[in-house]
Design a protein around this nucleic acid. Structure first.
Length: 881
RNA sequence: GGGAUGUUAGCUCAGCAGGUUUAGAGCGCUUGUUUCACAUACAAGAGGUCACUGGUUCGAGUCCAGUACAUCCCA
């Protein structure tokens, strides 16, 4: 069999993915087994795979594959999100490039384009996930705007409205003038930007006195309805009850006082524009000030501004500056840096704006969700996010659920006159209700006008774990009963509140139970400078290129190796490189084993028998440890332990011990044990590296069509033999010392040596055959006294001698012994200090004191051995001089 | 301004219940080795006053308080 010395991922990955698909291994149907369920955080339908998806979906696939191999009925439900604002922005841009304005073609026509776009680009990302090896049940693929999901959202809206939890209200919202929609707080990014601070004079009414106000937005002066100072500010005390004249528009407005005003900032005088600043809005409410909305929806100034009507807000700022300068009311202009909010999607500067929106009352319905996390019914990993969650849930705001977009779930409210409306599941029901409420039985559908807005995207995704099993339309259906609540949710901490928390709320409200038991929060993928990876920065590698270069397994390992839950991952190419190297290591171990000829007639060497016994032990031990890691969601830890198990223990030690001499066959017993170990190692590694493990598992033995490592079972044994593993660790130390000794004395590995061991009768001889094989030893002799003319070393408290035949550097050895002596004496000093402390001996538990005494004994013994050796060496030096 | 979290080797992190060595891992680094699975390897080695200050304790990287710095969330 001719196996290439390099593992070539591209040759096997697509082969096995097709094999898995053909045999339906990813499919799940309710049955008698315990379910293990994950619903995918649905990526944007027209999005493309980025590094965050790679990390997130690798984690999900690891958990799903592992659960499957532990005998659970694993179900990973994939799907995509309609992402209303992101998708609509893309379609608008595409139409714009064709010279089409969405307002010209109207809603119906626009939606046709949007669906066309969705069908064309939708699901690309799901195909990309397949390259990564994602074992989703693709037959269940869903879309947040497919028919069932759409109906579910409408039902939930109507239900909440009828419970009195949804209301319409005028609120200050984040207005995106480009997209002409309100966006949620979470969709606004604040960054520090250079701007200017304008100092503007306002005349005090009925006098020739002026006060100066500092503002970054002189154009909003047109909407001022008051000027305000801190009541503690002595400078403005005399203005109590006075009025001031707003420049440019010459409106008389009151001078008021409020503790909100920062006396240190600017002149200590603040202009109040309730319609265009959230803080001013609050002050306006408190002081019953009118709000003058001076902007149109597209960010131009309205008629209410009185000046600059129709002019864009930024141009208006320049015009206002000119105007104020001309009238002598501009005192000065300073450079200033302040935080500007921009829309995440369009990058337009957000305009705080009063607007009629739909809201969901959150306080009441969020209570069970708050308790669920506090009481641990829903566990967050890592748990540090619990406090954050609690803080947010205790200060929860009402949720603005309407968006001025077309792509999304249209709000099921129908107006039968200018202000009055009904909320219904469909137009027929709406008509019935409208006739009823208006008392006008002659109303027709033509008299009804449906609300133009759609719902916030999160208003559909908060139902995701329920709608994935159609639990809104068909409560208690078999899927719902079997899969809900799901097991784990894997997502990023940045959407903990506006997705995770809301799903928990919806779970209790609409399914009577939590949506999932555990939330695993991955970190963000950042670059080496800790910058978030993003397309606009151009600092993100192309995921599919990475898979081409390093293999899907290599990339998966790279993503997982250094990303404990909740910690950011600082990406660099050495990560997938390490993964690729690991795959290659596995491949070459396979090449070695597969290259052996077996011989049924040769007996199993003692060293191989011991090694196999030890390997069995260490494999089960690691399996148990990784099981504990998985229970705590320490996936990186579990991977690292599996990595070391294969690389160090299996390849570095076990294979080296059992390896037959060059071109010689291996005994059948050892070979069988080795194949069995290899199979089980592949199982342990399979969740992390599905492709190479399948490839090798299939080659290790003759498999039937339809067999696969991914449907094989992992069995975890609970018993341990500490003596065996402890004994082998000691043997490693002896072997390592013997290797060093050979090197120091220039004894070639090919030359056989004798080993004398000065030890008591309690010396554990189990691993002597292994030491003999690994160090090419002829005779092993136990002796009661030291051996003359021999090189020696200590391991633990036992002294080993090798009659020296090679040359060696005595000075160097003296130096080495001195160093060891220094260390041991230092160690002894610390132990003795402890034991010399009366309070320690009196108060510490007995076993701790005993341990210290044992440490002291061992150290003393070692020191006396070392001192003796040193004396001899020095004597020899003296003699030879 | 309010809140949360963190600060351990060059980098990324363990150290989960205070006492098994004068703190561990992976990567990186240094030196040596192309020997027969793998140089995408093997072997050996260097590298840390556990941010700082104080407290609790017989004993603190581990518990408590304060300070500094960093990151994130909310306003």
């Amino acid at each position: 069999m001719n196996i290439p010395p390099r593992y070539e991922p591209s040759k096997v990955e697509s082969k096995w993915y097709s094999y898995w698909m053909e045999h339906g291994f990813f499919r799940s149907k309710p049955d008698g087994r315990e379910p293990y369920t994950i619903v995918i955080p649905p990526p944007n339908v027209t999005g493309v795979l980025h590094m965050g998806h790679m990390l997130n979906n690798t984690v999900q696939d690891v958990l799903i594959r592992r659960a499957r191999m532990l005998g659970k009925n694993a179900c990973w439900v994939p799907g995509t999100d309609h992402a209303s604002i992101a998708t609509e922005a893309k379609v608008v841009a595409k139409l714009k490039s064709e010279g089409i304005d969405k307002r010209d073609i109207g809603r119906e026509e626009f939606l046709k384009h949007a669906w066309e776009w969705t069908n064309k680009h939708g699901g690309i990302i799901l195909e990309q996930l397949k390259r990564l090896g994602a074992s989703c049940d693709w037959d269940r693929t869903l879309f947040t705007m497919d028919e069932k999901r759409y109906d579910s959202v409408i039902k939930v809206f109507v239900n909440l409205y009828r419970k009195g939890l949804i209301y319409r209200g005028v609120r200050m919202v984040n207005w995106d003038p480009e997209a002409r929609t309100a966006v949620s707080d979470e969709e606004v990014n604040y960054t520090e930007e250079k701007s200017k601070l304008y100092y503007v004079r306002y005349r005090v009414a009925g006098s020739e006195d002026y006060i100066t106000v500092a503002t970054t937005r002189p154009e909003t002066i047109l909407g001022d309805t008051a000027v305000c100072a801190n009541p503690a500010d002595k400078r403005y005390k005399h203005l109590k009850g006075k009025k001031v004249i707003v420049p440019m528009v010459n409106r008389e407005v009151p001078f008021i006082f409020d503790e909100y005003v920062d006396m240190e900032f600017g002149t200590g005088c603040l202009k109040i524009t309730p319609a265009h600043d959230i803080n001013d809005y609050e002050i306006g409410l408190k002081n019953k000030l009118p709000a003058i909305d001076i902007f149109n929806d597209d960010g131009t100034l309205s008629e209410k501004a009185l000046l600059f009507t129709g002019v864009d807000r930024f141009r208006a700022r320049e015009l206002a500056e000119e105007e104020l300068r001309k009238s002598g009311n501009l005192v000065k202009v300073e450079n200033y840096v302040n935080k500007i909010g921009r829309s995440e999607r369009t990058y337009a500067v957000i305009e705080p704006k009063l607007s009629v929106q739909w809201f969901l009352k959150m306080k009441e319905i969020s209570q069970p969700a708050l308790r669920a996390v506090i009481d641990g019914d829903v566990k967050l990993h890592p748990s540090k996010f619990r406090n954050l969650y609690r803080h947010w849930m205790e200060n929860v705001h009402d949720w603005c659920i309407s968006r001025q977009l077309w792509w999304g779930h249209r709000i099921p409210a129908w107006y039968y006159n200018d202000n009055e409306f009904v909320v219904a599941h469909d137009e027929d029901e709406a008509l019935r209700l409208a006739r009823n409420e208006s008392g006008n039985s002659r109303l027709t559908k033509d008299d009804l006008r449906q609300d133009e807005d759609v719902l916030d995207t999160w208003f559909s995704s908060w139902l995701w774990p329920i709608t994935c099993f159609d639990g809104i339309n068909n409560p208690g259906n078999p899927d719902m009963k079997y899969y809900y609540p799901t097991s784990d949710l894997i997502t990023a901490p940045e959407i903990l509140f506006f997705w995770v928390a809301r799903m928990i709320i919806a779970g209790y409200e609409f399914a009577g139970d939590k949506p999932f038991s555990n939330v695993y929060l991955t970190g963000l993928v950042r670059d080496q400078q800790r910058r978030k990876m993003s397309k606009s920065l151009g600092n993100s590698p192309e995921p599919l290129d990475l898979i081409d270069k390093y293999g899907a397994d290599g990339v998966r390992v790279g993503m997982l190796l250094c990303s404990p839950a909740g910690n950011d991952l600082l990406y660099n190419d050495s990560l997938p490189e390490q993964g690729r190297n690991f795959a290659n290591k596995i491949w070459n171990a396979f090449r070695l084993v597969k290259g052996w000829k077996t011989d049924n007639n040769i007996p199993q060497p003692e060293s191989s028998a011991i090694a196999a016994e030890w390997m069995e032990e260490v494999l089960n031990r690691v399996l148990l440890q990784t099981d504990a890691d998985f229970k705590k969601y320490r996936i990186s830890e579990a991977l690292m332990k599996s990595y070391k198990l294969f690389w160090d223990e299996f390849s570095g030690w076990y294979l080296e011990i059992i390896k037959p001499e060059y071109m010689k066959p291996v005994d059948a017993k050892t070979y069988a044990a080795t194949i069995s170990f290899f199979e089980r190692l592949m199982q342990i590694i399979h969740p992390f590296m599905p492709f190479i493990t399948e490839e090798i598992w299939q080659l290790l033995a003759t498999r039937k069509e339809g067999e696969s490592i991914m449907t094989s079972r992992i069995n975890i044994k609970r018993k341990h033999n500490d003596r065996l593993s402890g004994g082998f660790e000691y043997a490693k130390e002896v072997i390592s010392s013997l290797r060093n000794l050979r090197k120091e004395k220039n004894i070639p590995n090919s030359e056989k040596i004798d080993l004398f061991i000065k030890a008591g009768s309690d010396y554990d001889q189990t691993f002597i055959p292994v030491i003999r094989k690994m160090c090419n030893i002829n005779n092993v002799v136990f002796t009661g006294s030291k051996v003359e003319n021999a090189a020696s070393f200590m391991a633990g408290t036992v002294e080993y001698f090798v009659p020296a035949s090679g040359s060696h550097d005595r000075e160097e050895e003296i130096e080495r012994i001195r160093e060891e002596l220094d260390y041991t004496r230092g160690f002894l000093a610390i132990v003795e200090k402890k034991l010399g402390n009366e309070k320690f001996v009196k108060n510490a538990p007995g076993d701790v004191v005993e341990m210290e005494k044992k440490k002291k004994q061992d150290a003393l013994l070692k020191i006396s051995h070392l001192e003796e050796k040193l004396r001899e060496l020095q004597k020899d030096v003296f003699r030879s001089e």
